[in-house]
Amino acid sequence: MTVMTRILGAAAALALSAGASLAEPALIFDLGGKFDKSFNEAAYNGAKRWAEETGSTFREIELQSEAQREQALRRFAEAGANPVIMTGFAFGNVLSEVAPDYPDTKFAIIDMVVDQPNVRSVVFNEHEGSFLVGMMAAMASKSGTVGFIGGMDIPLIRKFACGYVQGVKAANPDAKVIQNMTGTTPAAWNDPVKGSELTKAQISQGADVVYAAAGGTGVGVLQTAADENILSIGVDSNQNYMHPGKVLTSMLKRVDNAVYDAMTAGPDMETGFNVMGIANGGISFAMDENNASLVSDKMLAVTYKAALDIATGAVSVHDYMSDNTCPVE
């Protein structure tokens, strides 16, 4: 009898908690996991900030297998979670199939465009931010040679590289850019040892500023650059603090803002194409006490002017993904 009541009690508690979950937002992390020091973690920070400010709660799941992508989307949608936010392009295929089945649920996907009436597609103008840090790299370089280290060789990272090269050439047309990709598989996002080796190779070719757009691999790039006494540039989050005085700046991609905005809007979230760029604060570069001594007033003035020109449309940076080519090498 007691066992039975206990089980029933547990079931009742469960039913209650399921009921209470209605209209909570939900956040789905990709296979990389919540604490990847990069993309997913930025999303988590945005959700945490929202939860702390509003005192509300949100649902979350770290995926274990590919089959769970669709499952997590459907289960959250069926339980009434709204909006359902997911990080990463890998959800694109699944979401375009699932979204029409739940017309009353709003979905937000980051880094991918899914054309459905109830989906907000958040994409970032990474090429603009990369352009700005490219200008800073060219101005800070003494050798006239700068480096770029990408993670996985996908169009998204080539977009970073292309914007960076354009920025470098805008500040110094004679500068040379050395480009390397870490690998061709998702493992390339988390290979700091290879990142370190690539940095050393670029240094031996004369590079004295290196930009890492490589997720966890970038930790190795920044570390080696600091050890070898050259400058590095961080990505996604503000990474200036990791090696004070050695990291020139960080290209900020405010994934946290995207998640925060979506959760704040709640079930009334506007859907459609949502571009986060310099103009609306989705993309910027990091200045704080850790890199203040590295960036001269003149450099800062030139970079801010470029940022303003991009924001107003006076200067346009070519987006690699628009035609899969880059005008400069």
């Binding site: 908690s17 399921a18 979950s21 996991g33 649902r59 799941i61 770290e62 274990q64 297998s65 769970q68 499952q71 997590a72 289960r75 959250f76």
Partner: peptide
Amino acid sequence: YQGGAELALWTNIPRELIV
């Protein structure tokens, strides 16, 4: 496997402990 996915969805049991 499926039960583990449900745990991940509705509880705070971390993914590692489900494994």
